[in-house]
Design a protein around this nucleic acid. Structure first.
Length: 1133
RNA sequence: GGGGGUAUAGCUCAGUCGGUUAGAGCGCUUCCCUGAUAAGGAAGAGGUCCGUGGUUCAAGUCCACGUACCCCCA
């Protein structure tokens, strides 16, 4: 007896290919999905199926997809699978629709992450050590590191079934790529949008280098430190016109934790919309700030100060009164005396507007030193004020400055504070503990420091970017005006340069006189340098060695030291992947812009932006039209995956544990791709069981009976041997309109599903497509096949059988085609079985199915839905009454709107499913048997009566339900109820939910106004029928456990101790025999009694019984509950 | 600090135009059905629909404010 728990697994996918009329290849019930995937990977490689799909669509309309290059700076993770699923699904879908979808892989090779990884490998720390090691060698290591990781990405790409051309992958480090980027930069430079300006960076004065965001994210960078926090008086010297008179001579109070920056004070920012108070000391010594400030200038007495209204009590304490409250806008333009006059800041020292100002802490007035703060720099720039920086690159004040000359910036806090106190300008001072960044390498206190940097003036094209974005189709749509749109509205100039090594060198040469030359290609560089540099590696340090005479003045020009932001590299991929326009211009033209790109939401400010920005800067339009923006991948607990937490799921392991199809379905078609995804084994197992195996088993069912028809001419025993059913036979089946209702229903569902899935995928909504497909697979398996089994057992010989085979086959073919983009392995495996003999060898070379609207019937769909609800109610009623379904009952009564119109085929279906002899309307059963409940239908009443709805509802509840029900069921279809506040109101059936229920002796279930009632009386005849059905079930189970094939004929001998069971077997023997394919069905004679079976224990055994012919293996079975023993054996053919 | 997102059963999530007993799956308990199935069905237990206020005859749903968590940026 085979072990049912561990059935044999198929080692490989079924073979593809079949001659017309040949049987479909057999499908085992238990597939090994992983093995099938590997088999198909080999087949696709051997048959070059991907290439064939491209060749097949050559010359067809293009549908362009851009691969956002993964950064090849580490091993791929699960989140890489996520985006790559979508990058595969839509190109496959569009290819099946007949588009030519070129898919060129790409790798992002440059950038700090690569450098950091190599630094770690080499044990280097910081730029001085890299330079000591040698930039040439360092960059060679970077290149080698990238190539190493590309292999891992390629392996993952192939394994998950992501069809993209890896052999022609673009690499951002290739010379042709770099040259294209140079071309783009020169184009931007020529438009005057590539400029040099200061940029504030966190900077380590000991290492002499700015720290990247990545470095700032290192542990221990932020440490709690105690700094002096000082509140300083800035005496107003000239109030703006129209200002409050109290302002003149008042002190603006400014709070800072970096007194050393006061030396460079350039302006004070106030928020224009925040109210400020002008307050005056009302006397006494209770206030902060000292009782008798010594003043340098005679104006004012130091007893009048300005501070934000929200903060004045906290800042000033007791003893002050408010003279006036003014908006910040009224302060703007005021001039003041700076706290120090150590350096000259021309035109400075006035109050400006700054919307970044808050009243959370400080005084609401913010001191600005543009060389040492990003906000400061931005505001100062906007007001046309100069950037003055007295701090040298080593962190020390310039020699020769009074008071602080030569001091390390941090060491200047003390002397400066003391000097302020001395001069009476220090209003308050206290130690302040806060978190402040330090160099992760050497621990030195960082300063925010203005460094020269190259910018692209994206703010100039901001309106254009907004216009391009407005034309872009985002999925999900909220990103366009939400996260991405909001960010675009806050656009600032693109800080392009990086003072690093492994990146595209900024193609800018500068001579001693400051003349700048931007170079757009190696050819141009060759011309300038007077040497053939076409073979030059355009990376550092080689490109740094190229100098040429300045075209403007003839002085020697050298390249500036920076490389560029890697995001500019990836944003240039639409042309740079072809090396265009310097080469392959036609290929680029044909593939610009993209119809589709897809990445996770973390790319909103990354690739989504750089791609749109570069396209708009260079070509005046965005590089993409549709963009799918995915959520981030989390672990099963909803935590971000990180090496630190040790919860990283290895992608290859995931694919080989659950199969690529399951993983693909998980990401694309289950849950919500736009939300965060939690990846765990449970969800994947469920997909395999519920979707993939259900689909497989439905196909397996079809093939089993299609081929059984050939083996036995119909397993149900009708007719002699015939040919196996083949897809070619579908043509001979009745026309769809002439098929039984169940078939017409299924075809309607299939075509509606094709219509909806097509629409969903065209709207880039894989989740909706997945829900729809999973629903169809469920309907197919658990309703159509369940209800059609007998037709398949009986074989395709009859018109009814032929219709069943043709219908199920057509449905499976449609499902297979629709699954092809989502689960390309399983779909192709089953395509190999189901495909017509003249069809393409791979489902991926087949055309997307089209919906035949004439086969879609919403009415049929509704009717079937009602029938299924009635079945559910009937089962519920049986369950509540504890009468098993196997026991036939005489009748069921149904009370449901629409039941009267239900086709007879569906009524029979409901009766059969519920195992009742008859089904009739409840109201036909007679008034005394039925009770009614009537509830108001608020949706309808609310529309009609608005504020009076509740009164009408109360009247409905108070009326006699039976009278209401009879009235609306009568000829007029209406009923009048008396509503106290309104008088008589006429209602129709639509205003009421009428529920019928039988009174006594029935098993009843009711939901949503629909009722099924079962007559629970079990007569003697019904009881015998029930026994017969139980016996059928036992014998079928026994057949299966005995390892018999579904077409095997058997002989059965039985013994029943219960006289009722014996009577049932006698009465229904032929019917039972027909059901179980028994050619002999008889009571056991004592002579045949086989020894050795313990009937009471319910165990089964096998005994050898010799007859006149060869030995027959008898399988013994017993059911103590029924008092039945029987044995069966395969009957001779 | 700014922007965005999420919040519904133990877990993962649906929830249509606002409509009066808030659903599904997983898990748990008890049954049922089964001649493809690792599937399917019924019942049970399990809910402060994050909180507060508002609009409305009626709010899980719309609006405002708040809270928590997540993401991006500073």
């Amino acid at each position: 007896m085979p072990d049912r728990k561990a059935p044999p697994r198929t080692p490989a996918a079924p073979p593809a290919g079949r001659a017309p009329g040949e049987p479909m290849p057999a499908l085992p019930a238990q597939p090994d999905l992983i093995a099938i995937e590997h088999e198909l990977l080999a087949r696709w490689r051997r048959d070059r199926t991907f290439e064939a799909s491209l060749k097949q669509t050559e010359g067809a309309p293009r549908w362009t997809f851009y691969e956002g290059p993964p950064t090849a700076n580490g091993m791929p993770g699960v989140h890489h699978i996520e985006a790559r699923v979508f990058k595969d699904v839509f190109p496959r879908f569009k290819t099946m629709q007949g588009f030519h979808v070129v898919r060129k892989a790409g790798w992002d090779c440059h950038g700090l992450p690569v450098e950091v990884a190599v630094e770690k490998e080499l044990g280097l720390s910081g730029k001085p050590e890299i330079e000591a090691y040698g930039v040439a060698e360092f960059n060679a290591r970077c290149r080698e590191s990238v190539l190493r990781h590309v292999d891992a990405f390629s392996a993952l790409t192939t394994r998950m079934g992501y069809w993209i051309d890896l052999s022609t992958a673009y690499r951002t480090m290739d010379s042709s790529y770099v040259e294209s980027v140079w071309w783009a930069l020169k184009t931007i430079y020529d438009k005057g949008l590539l400029v040099r300006d200061f940029r504030i960076s966190p900077y380590c004065p000991r290492c002499g280098t700015p720290l990247s965001d990545h470095e700032m994210g290192q542990p221990d960078v932020y440490r709690d430190v105690t700094d002096p926090s000082v509140t300083v008086r800035f005496r107003v010297t000239a109030a703006p016109a129209g200002a409050s008179p109290q302002l003149a001579g008042a002190d603006l109070l400014v709070w800072t934790t970096t007194p050393w920056t006061l030396v460079s004070n350039t302006a004070i920012a106030v928020h224009p919309d925040v109210p400020y108070v002008i307050a005056r000391r009302s006397g006494g010594d209770g206030a902060h700030g000292g009782a008798s400030p010594r003043r340098e200038s005679g104006d004012g007495d130091g007893d009048t100060v300005v501070v934000a209204e929200a903060l004045w009590r906290r800042v000033l304490g007791e003893g002050w009164q408010v003279l006036a409250t003014v908006p910040g806008s009224e302060l703007i333009g005021a001039r003041y005396a700076p706290p120090f006059a150590l350096v000259e800041v021309p035109g400075a020292h006035r109050v400006v507007s700054g919307t970044f100002v808050t009243t959370d802490d400080g005084t609401g007035l913010v001191h600005l030193a543009p060389a040492f703060g990003a906000d400061d720099l931005e505001v100062v720039r906007a007001n046309g004020l100069p950037v003055v920086n007295p701090v040298r690159a080593d962190g020390r004040f310039e020699d020769g400055l009074p008071l602080v000359g030569g001091l390390f910036f941090k060491d200047a806090d003390g002397p400066l504070s003391a000097d302020l106190a001395e001069r009476g300008l220090l209003f308050a001072s206290e130690p302040h503990v806060h978190s402040y960044p330090h160099c992760w390498r050497c621990g030195t206190t960082l300063l925010y420091y203005a460094l020269p940097s190259w910018y692209i003036r994206t703010t100039v094209i901001k309106d254009q970017l907004l216009a391009e974005n407005a034309k872009t189709n985002w999925q999900p749509p909220t990103i366009r005006d939400g996260r991405y749109g909001e960010w675009l509205r806050g656009n600032v100039d693109w800080a392009l340069s990086r003072t690093r090594y492994w990146g595209t060198p900024l193609p800018v040469w500068e001579c001693g006189d400051g003349h700048v030359t931007c170079v757009g290609s190696l050819a141009e560089l060759s011309g300038l340098a007077g040497a053939d540099l076409s073979e030059l590696d355009p990376h550092r340090p080689f490109v740094d060695d190229v100098t040429f005479p300045c075209p403007s003045c003839g002085e020697r020009a050298s390249r500036v030291p920076e490389v560029i932001d890697v995001w500019f590299d990836s944003g240039s991929m639409p042309f740079a992947q072809w090396g265009a326009p310097l080469r392959n211009a036609a290929q680029f033209e044909a593939a610009y812009p993209a119809q589709f790109i897809c990445e996770a939401i973390d790319q909103t400010r990354g690739w989504f932006y750089s791609l749109m920005a570069v396209g708009t800067l260079v070509f005046g339009r965005s590089s993409y039209e549709n963009v799918v923006c995915l959520g981030l991948v989390m672990d099963a607990q909803g935590r971000k995956m990180s090496k630190h937490l040790g919860n990283v799921i290895e992608p290859m392991g995931l694919l080989d544990a659950h199969g690529a199809d399951a993983v693909r379905w998980f990401f694309a078609a289950s849950g919500s791709p736009w939300g965060q995804r939690r990846v765990g084994a449970g969800a994947l197992d469920e997909i395999v069981r519920k979707v993939l195996l259900t689909y497989w088993n439905t196909a397996s069912f079809l093939v089993l009976y299609a081929n059984a028809a050939g083996a036995a001419g119909g397993s149900g025993g009708s007719g002699g041997p015939g040919a196996a059913w083949t897809p070619e036979a579908a043509a001979a089946a009745p026309a769809p309109q002439a098929r039984p209702l169940l078939d017409r229903w299924l075809l309607s569902e299939v075509h509606a599903c094709v219509r909806d899935v097509t629409a969903s995928l065209e709207a880039f909504d894989t989740a909706a497509a997945g829900r729809r497909l999973a629903g169809l697979v469920d309907d197919l398996s658990n309703w159509y096949v369940r209800r059609s089994r007998r037709r398949f057992w009986d074989g395709p010989g009859s018109a009814d059988g032929a219709a069943a085979f043709a219908t199920l086959h057509a449905a499976l073919v449609a499902v297979t085609l629709m699954l092809a983009p989502l689960t390309p392995f399983l779909a192709d495996a089953l395509w190999g079985v189901l495909r017509p003999a003249d069809g393409p060898e791979s489902v991926h070379l087949a055309s997307w199915p089209s919906a035949d609207a004439s086969l879609i019937s919403p009415a049929l769909s509704d009717e079937m839905a009602l029938a299924r609800r009635l079945v559910e109610l009937g089962r519920s009623a049986r369950s509540a009454a504890a009468v098993r379904t196997r026991q036939p009952l005489s009748r069921a009564l149904v009370g449901a709107p629409g039941f009267a119109a239900l086709p007879a085929e569906l009524r029979d279906l409901v009766a059969d499913e519920l195992n009742v002899h008859s089904l009739s309307p409840l109201d036909a059963a007679g008034g005394d048997l039925v009770s009614y409940t009537v509830k108001p239908e608020f949706r309808s009443l609310g529309r009609r009566f608005g504020p009076d709805t509740q009164a009408v509802a109360a009247a409905v509840r108070g009326a006699d339900p039976a009278a209401l029900a009879h009235a609306v069921a009568g000829a007029s279809g209406t009923v009048t109820v008396d509503v106290p506040s309104l008088g008589p109101v006429t209602l129709t059936a639509a205003d009421l939910v009428v529920t019928q229920a039988p009174l006594e002796g029935w098993g009843v279930a009711t939901a949503d106004g629909e009722t099924v009632a079962l007559d629970l009386a079990v007569t003697g005849a019904l009881r015998l029928e029930g026994y017969a059905r139980a016996v059928i079930r036992l014998i079928q189970e026994a057949r299966k456990s005995s390892g018999l094939a579904v077409t095997d004929r058997i002989a059965v001998r039985w013994t029943a101790t219960d006289p009722d069971v014996a009577a049932a077997l006698a009465a229904h023997g032929p019917a039972i025999a027909g059901e179980v394919l028994a050619v002999a069905f008889s009571p056991d004679s004592p002579l045949d009694e086989a020894p050795g079976t313990d009937a009471a224990s319910g165990t089964t055994g096998v005994t050898g019984v010799t007859g006149s012919g060869p030995a027959v293996r008898w399988h013994e079975h017993a059911d103590p509950g029924l008092g039945l023993r029987f044995r069966l054996a395969a009957a001779p053919a």
